[in-house]
Every structure is written in structure tokens, then in C-alpha cells.
């Protein structure tokens, strides 16, 4: 009984905060959780993957091909780690491409990346989270949008207590920043309530019943 969540993106996009908030909300909801983080050298604008495992996991690492949900803050990183995903999984992807900081780097066209992801994972959602975050006044708030999307799914699947993750998200940052974060979370939350079907929520529930992910 394990739910595997793969969080990927570029160092500095707030992936560790996301994982930590999910962890806190899970523990508070009575669910066991393991989060394997990436620190140090790998954080400085490099490629980052964080493994979040809810339930009876004992190993901190998600096996390749066994991820149930991917939260991606950047398109190329989503593509890089997509092989961690089950084909019937869910990928929530920030529609943002950050070119690697290498002179003369060649980067795949955005549509190609999106199509590859669509072709690999059955349920994909592409969200303009960075654009929304910039509009609202927190340039690095895309993580909150994606987190809101997840919050809605996990609450409907009965994994998280209602409202908990949102409260946690809204306590990040000082003063107006916390308000913006809360707003971004709510935006992501409402997107999922419109876009994610009950059928998919039932699938997430059924994954939870399995011995191994």
C-alpha cells in the first residue's frame, strides 16, 4: 500500500518545500511518508528529483516505472524522469521550459516535449503555473499551483484530510507572500476540481489497495 509521487524540476524552483508540505500534511492526516531529497551540489540550478512515498514504503527511493503521480515544475525535467512513471499514472506539469545553462545548447521544441509526455503517461495535465505565479507577484510560486492540483486529487482520493495541505501552503512566506501562495494553491486546486475526473480519482484509490506500487 504505497503511493509514489515523483517531484522533478530545476534546483531553486521550490521542490523541497513542496515535498516537505506534502509530508507534513500526510503525517497530520495519519499517513506514513518518506521523502528522499536532493541537497548540496545538485541544487544549484541543476536537475532535481525528489521521491515522495506515502504509505508502507521502507525504501526511500521509487523504482523506475513505479511512480503513480509526477509533479513537474519544468518540461525538460519532466521528460528526463518520465521513465520513473507508470504508463497509467498521472503527470501534472508546469508548462515552462528552462534552457540548460550551457553555451550553444540545443533544446527540443516545447510541443515535442509535451507530446512525448502525453504519449508516455496516460493522464497528463499541462498548467501555465509559472505565468500565473508571475502575474500574482511571486515569480517562484509555480510550485504552489502544482501543489494545489495535487491537494485536490489527494483529498478526493481520501489520502489527505480536507484543507490541510492548503493551510500549510498558505503559511509559507511572510505577509503578502503567504497570501499570494495561498491564492496560487487555490488556483491549482480549482483547476484539478474542474479537470480531474472522478474516474481517475477512483483509479488513484485502486492503486492504494495494491501490495506493491
Amino acid at each position: 500500500m504505497v503511493l509514489n509521487i515523483v517531484i522533478v524540476g530545476v534546483g531553486g524552483q521550490g521542490l523541497l518545500s513542496m515535498a516537505q508540505l506534502i509530508g507534513w500534511a500526510s503525517v497530520e492526516s495519519g499517513t506514513n511518508v518518506l521523502v528522499a531529497e536532493t541537497h548540496g551540489l545538485s541544487q544549484r540550478g541543476g536537475s532535481v528529483i525528489v521521491h515522495v512515498r506515502l504509505g508502507d514504503a521502507s525504501s526511500p527511493l521509487i523504482p523506475v516505472g513505479r511512480g503513480n503521480i509526477m509533479l513537474a515544475l519544468e518540461l525538460l525535467e519532466a521528460a528526463r524522469y518520465v521513465n520513473y512513471m507508470r504508463n497509467d499514472g498521472v503527470a501534472v506539469v508546469n508548462k515552462k521550459l528552462i534552457k540548460p545553462n550551457i553555451p550553444g545548447v540545443r533544446v527540443e521544441r516545447e510541443e515535442n516535449v509535451i507530446n512525448t509526455l502525453k504519449g508516455t503517461v496516460k493522464n497528463t495535465y499541462f498548467i501555465d503555473a509559472s505565468t500565473k505565479a508571475l502575474e500574482e507577484g511571486n515569480p517562484v510560486g509555480a510550485n504552489m499551483v502544482i501543489l494545489g492540483f495535487l491537494g485536490n486529487m489527494l483529498e478526493r482520493a481520501g489520502v489527505l484530510q480536507e484543507g490541510l495541505l492548503g493551510k500549510y501552503a498558505g503559511s509559507i512566506g511572510r505577509g503578502s507572500l503567504a497570501e499570494i501562495n495561498s491564492k496560487l494553491y487555490e488556483w491549482g486546486y480549482s483547476l484539478a476540481s474542474q479537470q480531474v475526473s472522478n474516474e481517475l480519482i477512483n483509479s488513484i484509490k485502486s492503486w492504494l489497495l495494491k501490495e506493491v506500487p
Partner: peptide, 21 residues
């Protein structure tokens, strides 16, 4: 389990993203 290695991608080239200043 799948026999693929971590970090591979199907279909498209994903350039490396080394950490930077």
C-alpha cells in the same frame, strides 16, 4: 521491475542540466 535505467527518455533528446552559479 522494468529493466531501464533511471534518467532515460523515450523519443526525444534531453540535454544535461549541470548545476551552475
Amino acid at each position: 521491475l522494468l529493466q531501464t535505467k533511471a534518467g532515460g527518455t523515450k523519443g526525444i533528446e534531453v540535454p544535461a542540466r549541470p548545476p551552475t552559479f
